[in-house]
Design a protein around this nucleic acid. Structure first.
Lengths: 233, 233
DNA sequence: AAGGCTTCTGGACAACTGTCAAGACTTTCC
DNA sequence: GGAAAGTCTTGACAGTTGTCCAGAAGCCTT
């Protein structure tokens, strides 16, 4: 075994690339199967049936099932984060950014619902299977950073200050999207419109204008939180 | 077959109760197993091993595995919602309610982390297995109502109006809790303190004072939502 | 063309799964 | 006390699972 490891030292680069390429191909088949059946019902034979190969080859390219799924989780990450940075780069007003962000989430929900139900499935699995946890946490952090870039830019365009830290912002939109996904897959026709509406409604609440001399209702509470030590008991 | 259904018409009430009682006992064993292993790895034999009975008895009290797990999901619901209504009833100030709510979430995370990772696991499963979906949605709604009672009371105590509708409020706290759970189970020592801090910080942002004559930013959105909320309630 | 390496197949294995049924034990009721 | 109903155990079944392996097939160098 460990052919994969041995190869790297011996063979030419083109062969290494071909080996890595096939791993990606098989991982694609695995991801497709996982997004259709879910982690609990996905077997190696089913994955192979969604590929051009037989089930035995999976153990030629991956040590075991955990190795394969871990690789899938990593591959999923690359596919996941790229969409929204373009929105951040092109939007020239806060409104446009909010619209683009909301529309992006709606499109993601409509076009990649199965992909994202896989993500939530795997993230839940990572609560039980320690092997996935590191990769899941890494993806989670990169998603959080993506959300942070969006809300930061939104605040910047509106000349405002953010009143929630990065983890809170991510948790909120993640919760909204997960809720929308559940209702969307349950056949609710309003899920897409609801998601758009709620995102557009929520985004302005994350900032408060910074130029005004009068203290906004949220600002005091932010300051109050700053010295939270006196409260937590 | 369908002994459970036949019995109800024939036998005495005490026997029905005993039958129902055993179902609950077995469901408890199942829930314990599920919360330890997760849905994907939980088998009927493993459940039976966590009970005082052998594996065959499960098919005497439940039609099949889906029937058992569905029953478990329903039983989980009863166990879940009760904790926070007492906090709502006893808190006499907004600050006290916020403190109680945050502390309740922290305690829940600390004491029942495994239970709630089961909940998130099953909710993810319902994205694939249609059988669970109705019950999951019902639990989700009852959790949403619980959150709504809390934030409503919080607004009432502060003589303020809520600026987010019920689904958004639930999605936000659900996202925060899920995030905290992931980090808590990953061994992060800050998870509990972070959750408390973030809940206390977030709660005030959901309301804006209602006595002010000036229109707050977002007040229009609140008004737009007001009729939706009353419609769905 | 031959040999060696890589890639892939298909079958075998043991373990495990949900399901079921035959029978033993227990309780209830007349 | 004995029959009937309810309860539970045990073992079996067919199917599936992850894993492994012997060898076929493809590919490249010599």
């Amino acid at each position: 075994m460990t052919k994969a490891a041995e190869r790297i030292d011996r063979v030419s680069r083109s062969q290494v690339d071909k080996f890595e390429e096939r791993r990606k191909t098989l991982a694609d088949a695995a991801i497709q199967t996982l997004s259709e059946l879910g982690y609990a019902r996905t077997s190696l034979r089913e994955i192979a049936q969604n590929s051009a190969f037989s089930h035995g080859v999976l153990h030629y390219y991956f040590r075991d099932k955990v190795d394969l799924i871990t690789y899938c989780v990593r591959q999923y990450k690359a596919h996941c984060v790229q969409r929204y940075d373009q929105i951040v780069a092109t939007a020239r007003t806060g409104d446009a950014l909010a619209q683009g962000f909301a529309e992006g989430l709606v499109q993601t929900l409509r076009d990649e619902a199965l992909m994202h139900r896989l993500w939530y499935d795997l993230r839940s699995q990572s609560l039980f299977e320690e092997s996935f946890r590191a990769d899941v946490l890494e993806i989670d952090q990169s998603l959080e950073r993506m959300i942070w870039r969006i809300v930061s830019r939104f605040a910047e365009l509106g000349d405002a200050r953010l009143v929630v830290p990065s983890p809170v912002a991510y948790a909120m939109f993640d919760g909204l999207f997960q809720q929308a996904l559940l209702h969307y897959l349950s056949g609710s026709g309003n899920a897409l419109a609801d998601l758009r509406e709620r995102v557009l409604q929520l985004l302005p609440h994350l900032v408060c204008p910074s130029q005004s001399g009068t203290t906004q209702p949220g600002a005091r509470l932010v300051a109050a939180h700053q010295q939270r030590a006196s409260h937590s008991a």
